[in-house]
Amino acid sequence: MDINEALIKYCLRLGDDAMILGHRLSELCSKGPYLEEDIAMTNISLDLFGQTRMMYTTAGEIEGNGRTEDDFAYKRLEPEFQNVLLVEQPNGNFGNTMARQMLFSVFYYHLFKELQSSSNEKLAAFAAKSLKETTYHMRHSCEWIVRLGDGTEESHWKVQDALNEIWSYRHELFEKDEVDETLISAGLIPDTATFKSAFEASVQEVLDRATIEEVEEGWKSTGGRIGHHSEYMGHILPVFQSIPRTYPNSKW
């Protein structure tokens, strides 16, 4: 695979992950469990949209056909999105939202730490910038997992259930295909295998503090990176894209 083609796909994947999770969190705007957390959810969402914009803009620049961030966000169909299934999963209760966020943020924290030394200037700058934000997201969600797990009997079983449900979706974050292999051999991105054990150790530390003894291991999620999504995605896009699809090319 041509390096530029791989780079465009990689940028879109990172952008899609951030955008869909950002959208999920934005659904909690005015519906958070209490005021401070409501604000936290939308702040994290904003950071993720900012990261999305950087990646979509970079993809458009490399592609060189004049496609903008808005074209990537609003004018693609479901099979063209290449986000992991993890980020599509519904908000559920607050424990579900935090379990999803913890796996996502811990993974991206470790990825950005490596990616910031990429020889690609844009990727390195993106990672260094995003790392600062993701570190806050990670702490926020890790502290909540501990607080819920080591909280009341009810919060404990709820977060245990939440972890059981989301656990299988972490595998996809480490998947590699031709896109990744091309960029890894060119020295542009880190091999996710190099920080997998660090990711696992971080998550284990959170689970230990949260007094979660074991999380059920089940199937392995797959498909998002080639555009095969869960049913949820089919409900996210019509909402996310409703304005530009109803009023094409409108400006505001």
Binding site: E36, A40, N43, V106, Y136, M138, R139, H140, E143, S202
Partner: peptide, 29 residues
């Protein structure tokens, strides 16, 4: 950086009364 758990800086003095008896309410204001 690089810490899974943190509660921000140890002491953030209150800008109103200068007391250091303050606590973190939320990491996102």
């Amino acid at each position: 950086k690089g810490v899974l758990f943190a509660s921000g800086p140890k002491e953030v003095p209150c800008p109103q009364c200068k007391s250091t008896e303050t606590k973190l309410l939320s990491q996102f204001g």
